[in-house]
């Protein structure tokens, strides 16, 4: 975007403006599963405050959310529901796999836990930790914002 010197308007591409808007207001879906969900809630608390990054509200309805933060271990019974929620989200959408359990099954390599949520939905950013500190989640949201700004899967012309 350029500021035209001497005039009172900016010149830019629609794509850039749209990406700037998307990146500045990533609204997550409340997809709290286990311990990582508590750290995700802590990221909304005053000490870490995810709202200053643009995630002012966590939307409960997948239709209204941009970002699904899969926070916690994904049990086999919950897996189809996560897939359904992901399908219900409108494009463009992003996924953060928060914590070791969501990224790869974590400490639980057994019959009950899906070994990584990326076996059922595509993931954009993985956050390691058990649970990751809220700083880690904030950095992940930063990375999502960078991905949005630079285009690729998150651009306004992206398909699912």
């Amino acid at each position: 975007m350029e500021i035209i010197p001497g005039q009172q308007f900016l010149l830019g591409k629609v794509d850039d403006v749209a990406r700037w808007a998307q990146a500045s207001s990533v609204w997550p879906l409340t997809m709290g599963l286990a311990c990582c969900a508590i750290e995700m809630m802590t990221a909304t608390a005053p000490e870490y405050d995810i709202a200053r990054l643009g995630s002012e509200v966590f939307r409960a309805s997948p239709r209204q959310a941009d970002l699904m933060i899969v926070s916690g271990r994904v049990a086999r019974k919950m897996a189809p529901i996560i897939k359904r929620l992901y399908d219900q989200m409108a494009d463009p959408k992003w996924v953060i796999s928060m914590g070791a359990c969501a990224s790869s099954g974590g400490v639980f390599d057994n019959y009950a836990i899906v070994q990584g949520v990326d076996t059922i939905i595509p993931v954009d950013v993985y956050v390691p930790g058990c649970p990751p500190t809220p700083d880690g989640l904030l950095y992940a949201v930063n990375l999502i914002q960078q991905q949005i700004r630079q285009g690729g899967r998150g651009g306004i012309l992206a398909r699912a």
């Binding site: 990584g116 990326d118 076996t119 960078q146 991905q147 285009g151 690729g152 899967r153």
Partner: peptide
């Protein structure tokens, strides 16, 4: 029901969206 994949290396470079 869900096989264990090789470590899914989602390289951002390969996907075209640099970190």
């Amino acid at each position: 029901m869900t096989p264990r994949p090789a470590f899914a290396l989602k390289s951002n470079v390969a996907a075209g969206t640099p970190a």
